[in-house]
């Protein structure tokens, strides 16, 4: 696929039902053109991970995903030896009274390829999309290791040698900002902060994602969530929750919002008991009224 301008990219994204504003589109476009990693930060549920999925569809290539967590290390991110298979091989050789060499045992056949290695190895035909998700959950050691990978795109396995990416993968890193990442890592990337969408943008997203919903319901739901974000909540609902909620309402055959159904389905939107309690007892009525008036 050819991408000649930011507007091109934006409409292609839209065809894949991803509604991006001009800023995000520009960031993606530049990351593609300059072959730099894209670093996306934002509250949970604003569509960071989705960007990687959509871009991989656009580029018609594989999405390789590395989910980060505390304690993730090279064995889980790059490669590991297939021990079970190695032991079985040794036993089989013994049974046949054959010898075996160390090279044989540490050959490609016994190598388990983890996401980072896959992204580099499979790059012969076209670049892969590599999603490094929630990088803020990993620890500093892993962050430093990523820094190295992202600058050279090569991996050295002592038993096999150095593997170099033929085409640099398109890397997308996401973070929920549970901690600040080191500047050195961010400096290598194109940075974009994804905010909660405006009413119109969110309505577009809802309609694109849940076309079965009635126009009235879509407007009311969007407006309700937009109003809810103004309230003091520990966890403000993201776009993902909006989509979940309207999907739930459609499944319940609702064509419009009413206060009872809102109260019954609040758990789809809010994920903390304190928040549910706060909204149910204090602000539900006001938010509902504001939302239905403005929708």
């Amino acid at each position: 696929m050819k991408l000649n301008s930011i507007s091109d990219l934006r409409s292609s994204l839209r065809e894949e039902t991803y509604i991006a504003d001009r800023g995000l589109t520009t960031a993606i476009y530049l990351a593609l053109k300059l072959q730099k990693p894209l670093f996306l930060e934002g509250e949970p549920g604003v569509g960071k991970t989705e960007v990687a999925k959509v871009v991989s569809r656009l580029l018609d290539t594989n999405l390789i995903r590395l989910q980060c967590y505390e304690g993730i290390d090279v064995n889980q991110a790059v490669y590991e030896w297939n021990f079970t298979r190695q032991i079985m091989h040794i036993r089989a050789m013994e049974a046949q009274h054959k010898g075996f060499s160390e090279e044989e045992l540490f050959g490609e056949k016994f190598l388990l390829r983890r996401p980072l290695l896959q992204a580099i190895e499979n790059s012969a035909e076209k670049p892969q999309v590599l999603l490094i998700d929630e990088v803020d959950r990993s620890d500093e050691e892993f962050e430093a290791f990523l820094l190295e990978i992202l600058s050279d795109f090569q991996i050295t396995i002592p038993e096999i040698g150095t593997i170099q990416a033929e085409n640099r993968p398109f890397v997308i890193l996401t973070s929920n900002r549970t901690r600040e990442l080191h500047d050195a890592l961010k400096r290598r990337c194109i940075y974009f902060w994804i905010d909660y969408p405006s009413f119109q943008k969110e309505l577009d997203i809802v309609q694109a994602k849940v076309p079965d919903a009635s126009i009235q319901l879509a407007r009311q739901v969007t407006s309700f969530v937009q109003e809810l974000r103004q309230e003091e909540l520990y966890k403000v609902p993201g776009v993902a929750e909006t989509i979940d909620w309207i999907t739930a309402l459609v499944a319940l055959d609702q064509t419009a919002l009413d206060e009872t159904i809102v109260e019954d389905t609040l758990g789809v939107l809010l994920k903390y008991q304190d928040d549910v309690e706060h909204v149910r007892t204090k602000v539900l009525n006001q938010v509902y009224n504001r939302a239905t008036v403005s929708a």
């Binding site: 930011i6 520009t26 960031a27 530049l30 300059l34 990337c189 940075y191």
Partner: peptide, 24 residues
């Protein structure tokens, strides 16, 4: 980066600068 962007369009110009210069 600006080689790839139509700098006549202010938003594109703005976001190009922002996504490269701002990291926080």
């Amino acid at each position: 980066a600006l080689e790839h962007v139509e700098i006549g369009l202010k938003p594109d110009f703005y976001f190009t600068l922002r996504s490269l210069l701002i990291t926080r």
